[in-house]
Structure formats: structure tokens, C-alpha cells
Design a binder for these strands. Structure first.
Lengths: 159, 159
DNA sequence: TTGAATCGTAACAGTGAAAGTTACGAACAA
DNA sequence: TTGTTCGTAACTTTCACTGTTACGATTCAA
């Protein structure tokens, strides 16, 4: 699972988890994401530390949501993933004594801060329940069989 | 020169270039940035393609600014560097047919677009001439010898 | 015309961060 | 007790990017 797609993939997983009874094992999630159970555990650990999910060991164990999707935004998930930096660009530190470098750094850091604020504001406006509801609507409109309880999981399949 | 610091470093270089007579060779710039002349050429090539600098071969050749710093913003430099993506996060493409994934992607791409717009707006407001002027002011206030023509380049040194 | 300086660029090596993998211990339920 | 599942350390693999080498093309000056 590439680092830059963790937010999208975890959001996807959480929505489907809300539609399925019982816990989702790391193994099942890993197959859904074409990756390894250990990678799933590493990633989900951040969500657990933030109180978004809980984990249980042993048979019938796995991962469970702790709250309804109405109380979860993309920003919550994003923060739980503890991305080191959202940006690929940043300041430099070659000539700490040079006022030119210092001012250039300052301008760049300021611009990134503004962008970061805009990003968080936008992510905070998206609840996972919105994604589920719109997904169900899309599915209902598209599917001749009528609406399912959960998109793509009518027969318990994860996709 | 790490990818994420190219904007800061190139802005720094351009400001100093504006203060020095003659062309700056890739070799001199490379020493300033503690990197390799080939890396400098690769990076400056983007600025040349955007018409920000010109290059000349042969003795006394090197890199020259094509316009005054008043007509150059951080956004101009940023665009010239052709950064693949400013963000470390992005959408996924695992389940193209799943409406949940599609909507999550859409929300994330939308949030990133808003952040990108904010970033570009902030970078566009910073002219390189502002950085030079403020740098000179800082230097003058700090330096007992009084103001220099160019910060850190009183004796032609690049720093 | 020759030679030094300089950019242009291809090709390859080196680096580093993150994902993927293996292995094994701990907890839990039947 | 046995099988399931998470927790985590340790290692390998991968990938993108920088760094490096090499060589050709161009330009200037003697």
C-alpha cells in the first residue's frame, strides 16, 4: 500500500467495515488492499491509537469501528495516519546565517502553512457517512436489482 | 540537493545571481549548494525552459537572469521546477468499480485541489525582489559595517 | 587552429525511505 | 490444548531520486 494512498484506502476500508457484521481481520483487509496483513496492522495501529477502531486478538477477533460513520471525517482519519509531511517541498538549511535563504524559507513555510490549513478544512467537511450515503445512492441508481445495504458488499464481499 | 528544497535553494541562487556581475557557472552554484554541477544543470534547465534564465557555453559562460527580480515570484520558480506533485498523499485506484472508493478519491482530490490553489496564491504573492530588499534591510540592521550591495556577497562570496 | 572553459545529456551507481516479508510471541475462544 | 488473530522486531525488496562519471558540442581567446 503506497504511502500516498493510505487515506483513500483506509477511508474505503472503514466505510465497508461499518456495513459488515463482526470484526474485519487484518488478513481480509490485506486481501482487499492487495497487501500484507502486517502492513495493515501497522497502518490500523494509528487509527487504534486515535480511538477510531479497536483490535481484538484470538478467534473472531480483528478490527471494529468504535463510533458511527457520522462521527468520522476524512480529517480524523488523515490525522490518525500521522503522515510525516503532506508536502513534497519544504525549506532548506544550508546557510543558516544568510538572510536571503532565511527569508525564502520563511515565505515557503508560510505558503505551505496556508495550504495545509486549506487542506485540513476541506478534509474536515467530509464525513465518512456522506461517502457511504452517496455510494448507496449511486449504486441504487445504477443497479437494476435495486439498492443494497452496502455498496459492493451485498454478498459480504469486500471490494 | 534534496528534491523538497529545490524551490528554496533556487530562489536563494537567483537572488544572489541578481547581485553579481557576469554569469554564474554550474560549478560555482554547485559549490554554493554543496552538490554536483550536473544536478545544477538539470535543475536550472527547467528555469531556462521557462525563460527565467539563459545559459551560455564556453569561457565566461554560465547562467544569467533574463529579467529583474521584480518580475519573478516564488510561483514562477516553483512552476519552472516542474514538481511532479506537491503532495505526498493522493487517491488510489484499486477498485475502479467501487462507488465508495470513487467518492473517497473524489473528496481527497478535491481537498488537495483547494490546498494547491491556496499554495499557489501564497507563492504568487512573494516577489524575489521582496526577499532581496528585506534581506538587505536585515543585513544593514545587523551589520556594524553598514549595508552591503548584496547580502552575503560583499566580497563576491556565494553563501 | 588549438586548447581551455562550459553547458548538455546519457548512463550508471549510490542512497534512503517506505513497503513487503518472515518469524515468533502474546492473547483469546472453543 | 489448539487454532486464530493481533503485536512487533528484524530483515529484504523496491523505487525514486540524487550523485557521479564520461563524453560530446559550443564558445572564446591566443
Amino acid at each position: 500500500m503506497s504511502r500516498d494512498s493510505r487515506l483513500a484506502r483506509m477511508a474505503h476500508v472503514l466505510v465497508h467495515m461499518a456495513c459488515n457484521h463482526g470484526a474485519a481481520t487484518s488478513d481480509v483487509i490485506a486481501r482487499m488492499l492487495s497487501t500484507n496483513p502486517v502492513v495493515v496492522r501497522r497502518t490500523m495501529a494509528g487509527l487504534r491509537d486515535r480511538g477510531i477502531v479497536t483490535s481484538e486478538k484470538g478467534p473472531r477477533g480483528g478490527w471494529r469501528l468504535t463510533r458511527p460513520l457520522e462521527e468520522l471525517t476524512l480529517l480524523d482519519v488523515h490525522r490518525a495516519l500521522e503522515t510525516v509531511s503532506v508536502f513534497t517541498i519544504g525549506p532548506t538549511a544550508d546557510h543558516p546565517e544568510c538572510p536571503v535563504e532565511h527569508l525564502a524559507n520563511q515565505a515557503i513555510v508560510g505558503a505551505l502553512a496556508q495550504a495545509g490549513t486549506a487542506l485540513e478544512a476541506a478534509l474536515a467537511q467530509v464525513r465518512l457517512s456522506d461517502i457511504l450515503a452517496e455510494g448507496q445512492a449511486l449504486r441504487a441508481a445504477r443497479d437494476a436489482d435495486g439498492p443494497h445495504v452496502c455498496p459492493n458488499t451485498a454478498r459480504g464481499a469486500w471490494s
